[in-house]
Structures are given as structure tokens and as C-alpha cells.
Design a protein around this nucleic acid. Sequence first.
DNA 1: GCTAAAAGCTAGCACTTATAGCTTACGCTG
DNA 2: CAGCGTAAGCTATAAGTGCTAGCTTTTAGC
Lengths: 210, 210
Amino acid sequence: MPRAGLDADVVTRAAAALADETGLVNLSMNVIAERLSVKAPSLYKHVDSLSSLIHRIAILATTELGDAIRDATQGRAGGDALAAAAHALRSFVGGHPGRYAAILGARPGGPDDPLHAALSRSLNSFSAVLRGYQLDLAEETHALRMLRSSLHGFASLEMSDGFQIGTDVDDSFAWMIQFIDQGLRAGGESSNSGKGDRVAARSVTGASRG
Amino acid sequence: MPRAGLDADVVTRAAAALADETGLVNLSMNVIAERLSVKAPSLYKHVDSLSSLIHRIAILATTELGDAIRDATQGRAGGDALAAAAHALRSFVGGHPGRYAAILGARPGGPDDPLHAALSRSLNSFSAVLRGYQLDLAEETHALRMLRSSLHGFASLEMSDGFQIGTDVDDSFAWMIQFIDQGLRAGGESSNSGKGDRVAARSVTGASRG
DNA sequence: GCTAAAAGCTAGCACTTATAGCTTACGCTG
DNA sequence: CAGCGTAAGCTATAAGTGCTAGCTTTTAGC
């Protein structure tokens, strides 16, 4: 029996591709092994367990997603950057549903979990987009969370066929982006027009805590 | 052996409670049976399969969630109704993560699937909230999708510990609600200030298509 | 009190993840 | 080039899934 030339990375990429094709939930050691022309137990020479393999997929996917958003927003600012980032995320989800599902289900482990770094880089891409709106420091965290919630929510609802037919989903997505853009522009000019101590100046700590 | 007095509904509620306690993914026929002081195969006398049981949980949860939002928004309007609905959803997710996960993973089946009705009622509660902003018909669909995306995204990110520490999550949630409220109020007054044919008047069909 | 439906049980199948231990391929050093 | 050691593959197997088959027992209705 010649060797297959496997390796943690090769296994992870094969599993990620398979997850995109057939869904993350249908991923099993058997189908991954079949794809690699190998028997299931052999995979354990390269990977600790199925869950750790899915964790690796999440890290890979988060990195890829962060790169895609960074690339898409490169050289853009304001509403253009926002739209580019949003579309990059949505097309990633559309093209890689299995990878995205892995991201959603992932929870960072110890402090040296590579997922932490990948997540931070991904968040920084969004932060960079927001920086164009010149919000104050406290608001930027809120805005970042709002942005992530909206985009992630939209993508995952769309992924699970959560929107009934009747109105074009692309239109709704464009509408939402514009809604956010307008709100952020308005908030940048006249903040604090609301209920009161909402943005209670939470001291000056490091950025990118979304 | 005396009989346990089981029934599809009793099994579903026990499974839902267990899902909230230990997570939907950890739900198995064995643990449900144990909770009911019965052996696993006995459950099949009342329920078709584990997946159909989870589907039942989703129907139950969607109904409960719809009721909670309806009750919370009763007698309120505008921003108050929006905030009440949002908090109702978030507290539902916080108190019933397993049920909510079942909702997220559910996909309606045939046309007579009770999940359809439950989902519609739930959507109508959100629609009723939006009606206070007097958007035109086409925009209401977009706004409904945006609202669902934001709230669902926030809740599910929070559920999976997606927000790092650093800023209070409650503050961010309040901020997001106000952001949406302000945007909707502005949109109600001066619509169509944007890119152009975004809201291309999509004829007058029945409502609640989110 | 008898009959029959239905609720519970045990046994077992097919599938999963994962481990143990064997064999064989490959790369490095003498 | 020989041989040795590491590591990659394998088979066999354990433990735990969901689910079915078929049996026993309870319980409701006549």
C-alpha cells in the first residue's frame, strides 16, 4: 500500500470541501477517509478527533473569510467599504456553507487557540470599515456588534432558507446595507440624541472588542 | 411495570426542557427516556424519530416565542414596541437556548406542517411592530428581514459567546435597538433618499413575507 | 371477567467515533 | 547500498448512537 501523503492540513481541506458540498452535519470520518482513498482510522494519525477537525475547519474558514473581507475593502471607505465587506461575507457564505457553519459552531478554546487570532483579524476588518464613520470609541464597539449581528443574522437566515419568497433577497440585503450606512452616517454627526447615558464613556482601552 | 402515561406532547416538553438544560446537540433518545423513567425504544411509540422530535420542539418553541413577543408588544407602539419585542426575544433565547437552537435548525416541511403556522404568527408579531413606523409596503418586507437578521444575529452570537468582554452586552443590545428605531423613523419620513429604484413597488400582495 | 389495543420491555442491526496493536512504506544515517 | 527507526496505513474491536422486531403486560371497553 503506497502512502497517501496525508497531513493535518490536507485532511482539513478535504473535510472543508466535503462540508461545503454535503453539509457540515453530514461530515463523518468515513466520508472524509473515502474522499482521501484511505480508511477512517488512518485519519487519527493526523487529527485528534472529528470535533477537533471541525475546529480546524473553523480556523481555516475564519482566516479565509477575514482575508476575503480585507481584500474586498482594500482601498475603499465609508459606504463603499461597508457594502464591499457585506457582499464579501454573503458570497463567502453562499459559496462555502459548510465552512461558515463550522465558524458558527466554533468556540475558541485556550488562550493560544489559533481561532483567537483568526477571529481578531476578521473583526479588525470590520472595525476598519467602521473607522470610516468616525464614531467615538464606545460607540464603535456597539456599532461593530450591530454590524456583525446584522450581517451574520442575514447570512445565516438566508442559508437556512429563513426568508420566504415574495421579495428579492438581494434587494433586501442591499436595503439593509444602506439602512446601516445611513444610520452610521447620522450617528457620526449627531450622536447622543437618544435616551441619555447610553454611551457612558467607557475609558480608553484597546480597540477591536466585538 | 406501571405505565408512564406518556404522549407525544409530554415527550416533546421533556425533550425541550432537557435541550435547554444540556444543549440541543446533547439530546439523545437515551437521556430523554431516562428523564421520563423509561427505556429509549418506548419513546418510538409516541414519536417517529429523534429528528421529528426536534421538529416538534421547534414548533413548540416557535409558538411560545411568538406568544411571548405578542404579549410583550401588546399595547405598545413605535420604539417601545420594538424594544419590547427585542427584549422578549433576547430573554427567550437566554432562558431557552435549546428551544431556540431547535428553531434555528428547523426547516418547514409540507404545506400542512404546523411549523408554517407558528412561524407566520411569530413573523406577524414583528410585522405589527413595524407597522407603527408607517413604511410603504415594499420597504416593510426589507425592514422585517433587517429586523429579524439583527435580532437573530445578536441573539445567536451572544448564545455562542461570540462577543468578547470589554463592553456590556446589554448596552450594545440597547444601542442596536435604538439604532434601528432611529433608522426606521428617519426612513418613514424621507424614504428613497438613496440609490434609486431600490423600492420598486412590488404590487399589493398579502403581508408578512419575511 | 374477557378481549384487544397500546405501552412498555429485551434483543439486535447498522451506523458512528475512537482505540489497540500489527504491518509496511519511507527517509536518514553508517 | 544496507539497515534501522519513525510514522503511515491497516484490521479488529469497543462503546455509544438511532431505530426496528417481536414479546409481554397493562389498561380500557364491552
